[in-house]
Design a protein around this nucleic acid. Structure first.
Lengths: 206, 206
DNA sequence: ATTTTTTTATTGAACGTTCAATCAATAAAA
DNA sequence: TTTTATTGATTGAACGTTCAATAAAAAAAT
């Protein structure tokens, strides 16, 4: 049913369908036909809008990274104080955002993580995102502790966040976002406490 | 060149070749022919010894899990005191063992992690291993802190270990085992210190 | 010590399947 | 009538598995 201006609609449909297919059967068996069926279109349309399957996969990863960045940005802008503790807290909250933690997105994320080891384009995307997270964390930690210590704190918290994500994606029941946030915030408190800052969390865990 | 008793030799060769192939081009492109070429044998031999490609992949994952278990066991038996701190330290050391952290093993590990989301057999293996790690950690933490707190500590440390692994596998330069162990041990120290004082951070620990 | 037979290990071409990409045909909207 | 969107059969490449053929070693026979 050809109408004009279908492009943005179809692109979004196909990206969503890609995540649904990966959630359902994994990246290895997410064929163009299965993805197309999920979107209710034919297989040929994928090459038309994304220049082939690889283009669609790349666009899907970009979407996930964009969503994550957006989730962090929203929380960052909602902050009332700009203390390091608050800023880093917003990063944690953004990383365990509902839309990110949901089944399809989480499994697609992990699938791309593994895939990015050998696909230069995905690796590049993953690296950019990674460095921004580390850089943001590092910058905030450096405001309250020596640089060497701040780097370790940033690496530790980044590992903790990724580890919680990973385990959440692998658990059949999915990630328990409440518990994950609790653990991440606790660790953050300990990082601050260890360094000697007595500022404690004003955060309320649900 | 047929000699008797080739089976254990070939099986090991093929398992090693599988890891090498996955390290080289990723799980998706680790074809039977590529694996066979790495081992210096023909493709047909894989079905002969492992009843098909899936059998070889399963055997490879089993090997990795066995190696990890062994690395932890060795360090556990070498302990002089059986304090919770020492025991958990051995788990950390075992998880960042040289043979595990090496390129091929680490990348294969991550590839299987992602794959296990949709392959029941791999998921089972991964789950058993996961639960044992958590159970061991939990048991030790419970010796020195309330049960609810011990469960959180175990979940946190497990996430930290997996997160360091994940980031190590994704980093082009590979995992910096020294740094990873340092971060994990630091976190462990903080978990113990945190428990020893009041819950909110109003003390300075050094 | 040779030769013959049996056993074991291995190969690689052939087969059937699956997949992504292509493109001429088609159908609706402009 | 022209433009835009979509289809789906077709194509060719790549994959895992199979199996008859082969070759070397081991065992048995001479």
């Amino acid at each position: 049913m050809p109408k004009v201006g279908m492009e943005p609609i179809r692109r979004q449909q196909l990206i969503n369908a890609t995540m649904a297919a990966i959630d359902e059967v994994g990246l290895a068996e997410a064929t163009v036909m299965r993805i197309a069926r999920h979107a209710g279109v034919s297989a040929g349309i994928i090459s038309h809008y994304f220049c082939g399957k690889d283009g669609l996969l790349e666009a899907t990863m970009r979407q996930i990274l964009t969503d994550l960045t957006e989730a962090v940005a929203v929380r960052r802008h909602a902050l009332e104080d700009d203390s390091p503790r608050a800023y880093i807290g917003a990063i944690i909250e953004g990383n365990f955002d509902r839309t990110q933690v949901t089944g399809p997105a989480a499994k697609t994320w992990l699938a791309f993580w593994a895939s990015s080891m050998h696909k230069p384009m995905l690796q590049r995307l993953q690296n950019v995102n990674d460095r921004r997270l580390y850089s943001n964390l590092c910058h905030q930690f450096k405001r309250v502790m020596p640089h060497a210590e701040a780097r370790n704190a940033a690496r530790g918290l980044a590992a903790m966040i990724d580890g919680l994500w990973l385990r959440g994606a692998l658990t059949p029941e999915g990630l328990n976002a409440v518990e994950a946030r609790h653990l991440a915030h606790n660790y953050l408190d300990q990082l601050f406490a260890h360094h000697g800052c007595t500022k404690k969390a004003s955060h309320v865990y649900r």
